[in-house]
Design a protein around this nucleic acid. Structure first.
Length: 569
RNA sequence: GCGCCUGUAGCUCAGUGGAUUAGAGCAUCGGACUUCGGAUCCGAGUGUCGGGGGUUCGAGUCCCUCCAGGCGCGCCA
């Protein structure tokens, strides 16, 4: 983590200049607004209060003390700011050396040694289509999973399937009436979904259907043979279909534990709440009063005795705490469930579970306008197919122009580019914003897009192939004493990777890494349009080392996001 | 009615615990190298950072208030 090292050097210098300060606040570290002013900056404001001296004077002392600090070529005080220029040779040595040494681990700061994180993500409902709405939880959760693992955490990924609840009573009732084995076999999810929608409508007019649905669910919870057999079959058929999508997205889980998994713990969980004196009966239902926290009561059991979502999540949380003793548990679930998550944490806090502190709602805005004109859901598979189709034309065009020499698998590349566009589109912005579904924006291949990053990566491959330099050769980092603006900007960008990864982990926000990778790819694109690598004489070897480093950083970043780096496209 | 979230360029968005001159992409217009791939690069223009007040030497960023939009608010999950 080269940039961090330079930052530490500056902080150390400040510590030495002002030994009377017990602590040096990190906020003094900033970046000048214009690269021409320097690469790193120390601002004196945060120190002014503690030292009781004017910022300007403090800056002067820092600047004086930092003169000749190794690793920096110039120190320039501007009022309360002290701007530092990195010595390009030291920078190049640090960055290129680390990229070559750490390889696949380049850019990953060590943050989580000895800590465990549970990530609850994707979590679709069985017997319903895998819609575009589930994409967000899947993609964000999978990215966080990889980010945590890369930074040294032990990570447990759980797919918390929606495979329990009254809704399955309705489905079972429908199957009882119209069970069509052939239709179920042919397209299980589609068939179940159609039945479900149909019976939901009929339930509104027909009370007997609602009653039968409740009865079926009670039978299911009681372990009734017929109910369990049918439910198990539907669950397995659904999972088989989901697995196709997961395979396509390159997503996997350590555990597929749906809500049903916690079924046998529900009684015990209820008992825990009762013993804590928190359980109250209200109109036949069992609730936990949360009015002291200005929250509506949490409903644990309905008046007919059936469990609720909240009770099942309570049981799940306790089970996870027992099984994994997590330090953090991320719930990658949409923003509309904010109240539910608050209630869950509140009940656990009342029960005296200290680990509930580590539960984080990694919320995200939902996708608007994702229905067709007829009001049908847009299936994820349709979107992925469309993405692959759009990119295919471009791949074939490139192939015809001879840009993708050798044997290439056009379909595989088209698929990877399409996925790159869709995944990046979902990760590049702050997760809390709602996303308006828009084919053209989602499948944009220009500018700030997944394919833009993949393209930059493939260019590194192109250069290395052409030059037959797949391995980093000997080079003289001293050449960078004459570094151009583009060289410097690219080296600085490379050095910043671990800072971006760190921010993504700390905030549970993959978009920081996305923004960083765009910056890196942009700097690389500018660099290679301005600097010839192959055949550039004494520059060739050092520049090839830069290409290798960019390739490593971009490749690592793309893999963290779940996007395939491509050699050719 | 109450609660949570959001409001930055025509559009979609970045903008680290306040700090040097608010930035990208898309779209529009104009341009680029006979050498490593034009899914690229360069240039141009547009901002009451939703409105108003406050704290501060300094606010897109913190506090209050109003407006607009979204989402929630016990037997769906």
């Amino acid at each position: 983590m080269p940039m961090r090292r330079f930052q530490e050097a500056l902080l150390g210098q400040v510590r030495q200049t002002f030994p009377e300060l017990a602590e040096i606040p990190e906020q003094i570290l900033t970046v000048p607004p214009d690269p021409a002013m320097g690469d790193l900056c120390l601002q004196a404001f945060p120190l002014a209060k503690a030292l009781r001296r004017p910022p300007q004077q403090i800056a002067e002392e820092i600047a004086t003390g930092a003169a000749g600090l190794p690793g920096f070529s110039k120190v320039d005080q501007q009022g309360p700011y002290v701007n530092f220029f990195l010595d390009p040779v030291a920078l190049a040595k640090a960055v290129l050396g680390e990229a070559a040494e750490r390889g696949e681990a380049y850019g990953n700061p060590e943050l989580g040694a000895g800590q465990t994180v549970v990530v609850d993500y994707s979590s679709p409902n069985i017997a319903k289509p895998f819609g575009i709405g589930h994409l967000r939880s899947t993609v964000i959760g999978a990215a966080l999973y990889r980010l945590y693992r890369a930074t040294g955490y032990r990570v447990v990924g759980i797919n918390h399937l929606g495979d329990w609840g009254t809704q399955f009573g309705l489905l079972l009732a429908a199957c009882e009436d119209e069970g069509d084995e052939a239709a179920l076999e042919a397209d299980p999810v589609e068939y179940c979904y159609r039945l479900y929608v149909d019976y939901s409508k009929r339930r509104d007019h027909d009370v007997t259907i609602a009653d039968r649905a409740r009865q079926w669910f009670k039978r299911l919870e009681a372990g009734d043979q017929a109910a369990v057999v049918l439910w198990t079959r539907i669950r397995e058929l659904s999972l088989r279909e989901f697995d196709q999508v997961y395979g396509r997205l390159g997503v996997s889980f350590d555990y597929v534990r749906g809500e049903s998994y916690y079924n046998q713990r529900l009684e015990a969980t209820l008992e825990v709440v009762r013993e804590a004196g928190l359980l109250q009966e209200d109109a036949g239902a069992l609730i936990v009063d949360l009015s002291d926290l200005d929250m509506p009561p949490g409903l644990l059991a309905k008046s007919d005795g059936a469990s609720t979502y909240l009770l099942r999540d309570l049981a799940a949380a306790m089970s996870r705490a027992e099984d994994f003793s997590f330090d953090r548990c991320l719930y990658v679930i949409g923003s509309p469930q904010a109240l539910h998550m608050q209630q869950l944490r509140a009940v656990l806090a009342k029960l005296g579970c200290p680990w509930a502190e580590g539960m984080v709602h990694v919320n995200f805005g939902h996708i608007l306008g994702m229905k067709t004109r007829e009001g049908n859901l847009i299936f994820l598979n349709q979107v992925l197919d469309e993405a692959a189709q759009r990119s295919r034309a471009k791949v074939e065009e490139n192939q015809q122009r001879g840009w993708t020499e050798g044997d290439i698998d056009v379909l595989a590349i088209a698929e990877a580019v399409g996925l790159g566009a869709i995944i990046f589109n979902d990760l590049k912005q702050n997760r809390v914003h709602d996303i308006t579904f828009d084919w053209d924006r989602m499948l944009n291949f220009d500018g700030d897009s997944g394919p833009y990053l993949q393209y930059a990566y493939s260019r590194t491959g192109g250069i290395l192939r052409k030059g037959e330099c797949e391995v980093v050769a000997e080079y003289d980092a001293g050449a960078f004493a004459q570094a151009s603006e583009h060289d410097r900007a690219l080296l600085v960008a490379l050095a910043n990777m671990s800072l971006a990864v760190e921010r993504s982990v700390v905030d549970n926000a993959p978009h920081h890494l996305c923004q960083y990778l765009l910056e890196l790819a942009t700097m690389f694109s500018r660099w290679y349009t301005n600097h010839q690598v192959l055949g550039s004489g004494e520059w060739e070897a050092p520049r090839l080392a830069v290409v290798h480093a960019v390739r490593q950083a971009l490749g690592n970043g793309l893999r963290l996001l779940g996007i395939t780096p491509l050699e050719r496209m």
